[in-house]
Design a protein around this nucleic acid. Structure first.
Length: 261
DNA sequence: ATGGCTTTCTACGAAAGA
């Protein structure tokens, strides 16, 4: 089973890139972030035409997450259980149910950016991450197989940035942000990229400004985190960075895993 | 560089992103 995540930075602006990439990468499941549209404006028909079931959790202008699946989607929930009534659409979860196979629970998340520091935005980011950790703890108790994928807006370590010194005053690289990431993994979960590669320069985001892509001034902030049962079945992780070179790209690229399940 | 681009909106500049 192939599971991917991609922050598309407006699904309506990126629909041609999305369909092209789906056709070439052929993921079974794809988590999307930053839809930047309401559910009724989501380009559902184009994606369904490729054989995907679509579940969205959008909002006007900002945020918005979705799960696309070639298998049946059941038990869809929107928002984190610990954040009832949260107006920002940053989390969706569903049970991916293959015809001949055990189900896998998949979550698509868009964590708050948290900048600038010193404002209410940073504690809001940490509160989201805390609610996410609580959800992961609950899923572990259920002993379900699960993947929590998306734009975490966290640079886990220095090797996950081309110029880590440039990020020391940024919410993405604060010790508190990285501690939440570590707290999540310490539950017994696996960072799929680091479980399959020690390579540096494994980036998923390059800023639009100052020629960041051309200079490979990137960061790794999009992650697939997998449950213990799935860690034994992880065969590879790939970052489709070539997509960043397409015309009018998202500033993020897709990252995907293969599981032998 | 004090965001140098990109996206959104009952838009025409401002806010947000990372």
């Amino acid at each position: 089973m192939r599971i991917a995540t991609w922050n598309v930075n407006s699904v309506r602006q990126r629909i041609d890139h999305l369909t092209s990439w789906l056709a070439e990468a052929m993921p079974d499941v794809c988590c999307l972030q930053e839809l930047k549209c309401q559910d009724d404006a989501f380009p559902r028909l184009e994606i369904e035409a490729l054989g995907y079931t679509v579940e969205t959790h959008g909002q006007k202008t900002f945020n918005g997450v979705a799960i696309l699946s070639r298998h049946r989607l059941e038990d869809v929930t929107r928002g984190l259980p610990d954040q009832p009534g949260e107006p920002q659409s940053r989390y969706i979860e569903a049970l991916v149910t293959p015809v001949n196979g055990k189900p896998v629970r998949v979550a698509s998340l868009y964590a708050p950016n948290g900048n600038p520091l010193g404002t209410e935005k940073f504690p809001y980011k940490l509160a989201f991450l805390e609610a996410l950790i609580k959800r992961a703890r609950s899923l572990l108790t259920s002993e379900e197989r699960f993947v929590i994928a998306g734009d975490y807006n966290i640079i886990p370590a220095a090797r996950d940035a081309e110029h880590p010194d440039l990020w020391v005053k940024d919410a993405l690289y604060q010790p508190e942000s990285r501690a939440k990431w570590q707290e999540l993994l310490n539950l017994g979960l696996t960072d799929a990229l680091r479980a399959t590669s020690d390579a540096g320069k494994s980036y998923t985001f390059w800023d639009y400004q100052a020629g960041a892509w051309q200079k490979n001034n990137g960061i790794r902030i999009d992650h697939l985190v997998i449950s213990p049962q799935l860690a034994d079945h992880l065969t590879s992780t790939a970052i489709d960075s070539h997509v960043r070179g397409w015309e009018k790209p998202s500033d993020h690229v897709p990252i995907r895993i293969d599981l032998d399940i």
